[in-house]
Amino acid sequence: MGKDCVPPVAMVLVQLGFAGMNVVSKLALDAGMSPYVLIAYRNLIAAAFIAPVAYLLERRSGATVTKKVLLQIFVSSIFGATLNQVLYFVGLKSTTPTVACALTNTLPALTFVMAAALKMETVRPGTPAGQAKLVGTAVCVGGSMIIPFYKGPVLRLWASPIHWSFAEHTSSASAPAAAAGGHSGAVAGDVLIIGSCVAWAVWFILQSRMAEGFSAPYTSTAIMCVMAGAQCAGVSAAMDRSLAVWKLGFDIRLYSVLYIGIVGSGIGFAVMSWCIQVRGPLYVSMFSPLLLVVVAIVGWAILGEKIHVGSAIGSALIVAGLYMVLWGKGREMDKPGLDNDKGDEEAAVGLAFNGKAAVASNRVEAVSLPVFSATNPKQEAPRNGSN
């Protein structure tokens, strides 16, 4: 049970880190920082942070950085870092952190559809596990959509003892500029955030593919952050050639780039890469709805935001849907061949006609826990008895 608890605990901690990243990033953008500069600093700081960790933990892993691996990391950096982050932070300037987090909860559905289309994730709607995954995904997305579109009355909560007055002043200063953009600006921001979710879902798929031949998540993360930092710096130079935009002082700009670089990219991407190798892309993406719940709590505690009835209902649905998907995923990993009870016959027929799909799904999900050594597919068979 000890090893089984590591992936879910790690992913919950990642979401807590991402919640703080959303808050400090919004404050930095409201203070006038360029989103392109913010992203470039984020990736360069992340690379500097994760490179020593990769050297210490993976220098004897036996994994070789070939031209093919570099090409895979380069493509991953375009989707998972540059495109994903540029679209998200540019969109975040025109909307609120809560709405942005709500829209990112389309990620599990997008990842599930892509993984199922590529035969990396089994569906089997006639089995209890398959039904839990399908219904849980729908409940998660539905709950996340309630929050931005239905507010309801404000919940009467006690005043937060750790309210941050600086955040209130910064947000108030940026309010006139946001109001000038109007409804069209908010819609454009929402569309950009949805586009970032598509890019992030592609990154999940690419990472699971790369794990088949290169099982060194910290090394790949460090290389990806260096590439993404260079790409974002080029985008920033093309958008604004002034050197003044790169200036950092001892203020929210410096604090935000340090936080999102170390926590948001350095630690976050490395932990997610490891969890993808251990549990697969859908498992990792299903923790993203927790981010909305955490952001709502952090917004109330630090930023003094009000929590509405719609937020509470949506959060409850998100947690319920997440539990359903994790239950279905865990059931499939315990019995990857066939489900029990009435689903056995239908699952057997599915395996007969879709053998390649089952093999692909098991290969992605079954990378053994010693992640610091190269993965040997022939050694994956004993996995069934370890869970």
Rank of each mutant, 00 (worst) to 15 (best):
L326Q: 15
A347Q: 09
R363K: 08
L322S: 09
A374V: 14
L369A: 09
L290K: 06
A360E: 13
V319R: 03
L317K: 02
L303K: 12
G299A: 05
G343W: 05
S368G: 04
L317G: 00
D341M: 04
S311P: 00
A358W: 07
K335A: 08
L322I: 04
D344W: 04
K342W: 12
E345T: 03
I307F: 10
S361T: 12
A381F: 03
A301D: 11
G310R: 14
V295N: 15
D339P: 00
A352W: 07
T375P: 01
R363T: 06
L303A: 14
A374P: 02
V371N: 12
V298Q: 15
P336D: 11
A312D: 06
E305Q: 15
L351Q: 11
G314F: 03
P382R: 11
R331M: 12
L292P: 00
N354Y: 10
A301T: 15
A347Y: 00
R383S: 08
D339V: 00
L292S: 12
H308M: 04
N384T: 07
E346W: 02
P370D: 13
N384Y: 03
P336E: 14
G355T: 01
A352F: 03
I307L: 14
I297S: 11
N362Q: 11
A381W: 05
I307W: 14
V325A: 11
N384V: 05
V319I: 15
L351W: 01
A312T: 09
L326R: 10
I297C: 08
G299K: 05
E305D: 15
F372R: 07
G337P: 00
N384L: 05
K306G: 04
L292E: 03
P289E: 05
